[in-house]
């Protein structure tokens, strides 16, 4: 999971959790696989049809603003999304993503130059984004967070770690 290679889906600023996962589904859909079918429905209907495992969303500032609903992270994860790189993230969505084992990275310089649909490589342990325009660095993710990714989320990670103690 340390290196992720995928195609870029590029979006703009202030994409809120309502367009990532619409509020109308929050009380009617509980199955993650079902949630996945509605990811980004109101922003980009092509996304769920064409997304491939390890694809990467590259977005502007304040990705995931609005409601704190966890489904916004779950529905992306369930589509096999590899990571999100943005100029900035809304705080709760950011935490929800990492806690569901979806890598999210802040790197405004990279966002400015990465092109839609290009192939990008992310090295989480080394802290590098490699794209057509060059290599960008970010502080490498610590062991805990890598552990959360490997376990498949915070709850599973805690369970595993606790059992090992």
């Amino acid at each position: 999971m340390s290196v992720i290679r995928g195609r870029v889906w590029k979006y703009g600023d202030d994409v809120n959790t309502d367009v990532i996962f619409a509020g109308k589904y929050t009380y009617t859909i509980n199955d993650p696989a079902e949630m996945a079918k509605h990811a980004l429905e109101d922003l980009d209907p092509r996304f769920v049809k064409e997304v491939k495992p390890n694809d990467i969303i590259v977005a502007g500032k304040n990705w995931g603003c609005g409601s704190s609903r966890e489904q916004a992270a779950t529905c992306l994860k369930e589509n096999g999304l590899g990571a999100i790189i943005a100029k900035s993230f809304a705080r709760i969505h950011y935490r929800n993503c990492l806690n569901t084992a979806l890598p999210v990275l802040t790197c405004p310089e990279a966002v400015d130059v990465i092109q839609d649909k290009e192939m990008v490589e992310l090295d989480l342990a080394a802290g590098e984004i490699r794209c057509g325009a060059g290599t960008f660095r970010f502080p490498p993710l610590p062991e805990t967070v890598m552990g959360i990714f490997e376990a498949g989320g915070l709850i599973a990670y805690t369970r595993k770690k606790l059992a090992a103690r």
Partner: peptide
């Protein structure tokens, strides 16, 4: 402020990211 699962994880492990 943190989420409920995060709090549960602190109870269990004593730490959080």
């Amino acid at each position: 402020g943190i989420g409920r699962s995060e709090m549960a994880s602190i109870w269990a492990l004593g730490e959080l990211w």
